[in-house]
């Protein structure tokens, strides 16, 4: 008796997540429409993000209508990168010496980026906290 019940609960949970992801697509769609109409070089998904944010702030859309679907998308974000990473096999350049150099470059550059970002932010944060006191 317990198993079918649990199964139904699980199906319902997955169903809700799928429905909410479909709902999120509405904003993606409107983002694409706006991009098409205005011919702006901004991805449809970014416009969709702003539309959704505006809809949430104006209370047109309630958080619980899409929170579970959104949380699933955000927590499994890594999965969606995998196919494009497989696309690497189309580029011999990456497997050459240049590829190794590029990896080194990314390591050095990323370290500098993180270092400066953290440094600037930490300094500003300390200054603001001291100012507040």
């Amino acid at each position: 008796m317990v198993c079918p019940f649990l199964g139904r609960m699980l199906t319902m949970k997955i169903g809700i997540i799928i429905l909410q992801i479909l709902f999120i697509h509405i904003f993606l769609f409107f983002g694409a429409v706006i991009k098409q109409l205005l011919q702006i070089p901004i991805p449809a998904s970014m416009i969709g993000l702003l539309l959704l944010l505006a809809a949430l702030m104006l209370k047109i859309v309630k958080l619980e209508w899409l929170e579970r679907g959104a949380n699933w998308l955000l927590s499994e974000l890594l999965l969606f990168f995998i196919p494009s990473a497989v696309g690497i096999v189309n580029y011999d350049e990456i497997l050459s010496w240049q590829g190794a150099e590029a990896v080194l470059l990314i390591g050095i550059s990323t370290f500098i980026v993180m270092g400066t970002t953290a440094f600037v932010s930490e300094k500003l944060d300390h200054k603001e906290r001291r100012g507040a006191r």
Binding site: M46, G48, L52, E67, F81
Partner: peptide
């Protein structure tokens, strides 16, 4: 699967 990057980007509004 790669298509879901689109809605995932929108989901960052939350």
């Amino acid at each position: 699967i790669s298509h879901l990057l689109g809605p995932a980007t929108v989901a960052f509004a939350i």
